[in-house]
Design a protein around this nucleic acid. Structure first.
Length: 500
RNA sequence: GCGGGCGUAGCUCAGUGGUAGAGCGUCACGUUGCCAACGUGAAUGUCGUGAGUUCAAGUCUCAUCGCCCGCUCCA
């Protein structure tokens, strides 16, 4: 009858059927608000409210603890959002994030030019030659994937997928810079810094959590795909040849993380990328997907685990050597080509010297890259439940204790006989160890239900018996059952149950 | 960007050209003896925004912003 996040016991209650119900709850309880709400909102931007910010922080902390604090082979990093524009040239984003899109005049469907199927040639519309792709003639033999009409396309138009801004207050003398479209590149550019300061040896990884920005063509479904979003990324550097086993390692580690935090197994799956779907840098990639309640139910990516090989470090070696060219081109990043890779690239400035094999090489990289916001959405969706209790509906969020925004709420049963004072004393002690909440207003039943909707695992109630034997009741969110415990043992009991 | 739906109190929604509403929630006081109790009272509205038509617009028209669904897109 009772669902248990530890044993994955059967869930009797109704789960979330449509996103709307969750959106309403998020607003009602202060998890997530529309950005700039009083101005009519700004599309696909969201703000995290009092409960949401706690949940989001808990998600990030759980990740950090899992991949950094409890491992010997991982360290953390926090890079700036603005980076040297040539970073994005080297990574390929400046070129690849300027997609060309053409619109079918017949059905108004927009399609990426390089995705259009034609009669012949496969690479003519590749990004390296935007001018060639721009030629409208090149689309005359292309077929619209929607309506099947041939050659009825508008001029290809470039889509800028990176946010641009200027650095320097003097507009005439300012430089175009980009808001990072991923946190990964900050890790690559600090690879040698970390190597030189930590005495780490391969294999080791660097983790980072932070905001990234992408001008997505379309956004989707509440906080699932937004243009400003937060990432949790790992770049795990390993000896070439061991990359496949480390890829397997991280695949399993990351899936386990979601399961350990209470997401139901049947709502998670791996989805390997097909060869033609792989990004330009990747040798292999698998997504961890969650069954979201968009529409009729939709498997969508939570996280991708990619084998990036030695692509990025090699690219940055080229980028480093292209800086002179960049100055010569008047700091025009788009017009500065990367210099060619020398023959001895494996001994370059971002290479690694292996003491055991006495060899120098560029490490391979496994990248588990997760979206904080969409992960949070998955935790919310999976925790959402509606139950019927004595003919009344009970809404609750069955968060794993370590994710719950509030760990414990403390109530006096009624507002008299010294109960509020005792309850406050308990509250003041608990709040030093974890987020706690005090409430004395209205009927105790109502207070319990309010905490159910916030996902608070435990409610502690001071009642008439407390004055006699110093015991209080602990009410469990999921089972609604109460147990009595001595106040002296309360903190220890809760810390054990909460894993804190 | 296309097509469909929607936007009225914190939430869910009613209101088809003539005084801005309900339920729930919130707050105060009273009551209280463990699951959204009860009584009394109270606060809360740019009717998404801006124009237009009209004696009169939440209601009709146009534009615009936002959300949901389906496409498209998601290196």
């Amino acid at each position: 009858m009772v669902y248990c996040y530890l044993c994955k016991g059967k869930l009797m209650a109704e789960t979330l059927k449509k996103l709307d119900d969750l959106v309403a709850l998020c607003k009602r309880r202060g998890f997530i608000f529309q950005s700039s709400d009083i101005y009519g909102g700004l599309a696909s931007c969201y703000d995290y409210g009092p409960l949401g910010v706690e949940l989001k922080r808990n998600v990030k902390n759980a990740w950090w603890k899992s991949v950094v604090q409890t491992r010997d082979d991982m360290v953390g990093l926090d890079c700036s959002i603005l980076m040297h524009p040539m970073v994005w040239k080297a990574s390929g984003h400046v070129d690849k994030f300027a997609d060309l899109i053409a619109e079918c005049k017949k059905c108004n469907t927009r399609t990426r030019v390089d995705h259009l199927q034609g009669v012949e040639n496969e690479e003519t519309t590749h990004h390296e030659q935007p001018e060639a792709a721009m030629a409208k003639d090149g689309l005359n033999d292309k077929v619209c994937p929607k309506c099947g009409t041939t050659g009825q396309f508008t001029e290809p138009m470039p889509f800028k997928l990176m946010f641009e801004t200027q650095m320097g207050a003097n507009v005439d003398d300012s430089m175009k810079v980009y808001l990072r479209p991923e946190t990964a590149q900050g890790i690559f550019t600090n690879f040698s810094n970390v190597l030189n300061t930590t005495r780490l040896k391969l294999p080791f990884g660097i983790a980072q959590i932070g905001k990234s920005f992408r001008n997505e063509v379309t956004t989707k479904a509440f906080i699932f795909r937004t243009r400003e979003f937060e990432q949790m990324e790992i770049e795990f550097f390993c000896v070439p040849g061991t990359d496949e086993q480390w890829w397997e390692h991280w695949k399993n580690e990351r899936m386990k993380w979601y399961l350990d935090l209470g997401i139901r197994k049947e709502n998670l799956r791996f989805r390997p990328h097909a060869d033609d779907e792989l990004a330009h840098y990747a040798k292999a990639c698998v997504d961890i997907e969650y069954l979201f309640p968009f529409g009729q139910g939709d498997w969508q990516e939570l996280e991708g685990i990619a084998n990036r090989t030695d692509y990025d470090l090699r690219q940055h070696q080229r980028g480093m050597r292209s800086i002179t060219k960049w100055f010569e081109n008047g700091r025009d990043t788009e017009k500065t080509p990367l210099v060619d890779e020398p023959d001895d690239w494996s001994k370059g400035p971002l290479s690694y010297f292996d003491d055991e094999s006495r060899k120098r090489y560029i490490p391979y990289v496994i990248e588990p890259s997760a979206g904080v916001d969409r992960g949070m959405l998955a935790f919310l969706v999976d925790a959402y439940a509606e139950e019927e209790v004595r003919g009344e509906k009970r809404n609750l969020l069955r968060f794993h204790p370590s994710l719950a925004p509030i760990k414990a709420a403390v109530f006096p049963l009624v507002k008299k006989d010294g109960m509020p004072e005792k309850a406050r004393t308990i509250y003041n002690e608990l709040r030093q160890y974890f987020t706690s909440f005090y409430d004395q207003k209205g009927a105790v039943g109502r207070r319990y239900r309010r905490q159910d909707e916030a996902g608070t695992p435990f409610c502690i109630t001071v009642d008439g018996q407390t004055a006699e034997d110093n015991t209080v009741t602990i009410r469990d969110r999921d089972s609604m059952e109460q147990t009595r415990i001595n106040c002296d043992k309360l903190l220890g009991y809760l810390r054990e149950k909460l894993g804190i």
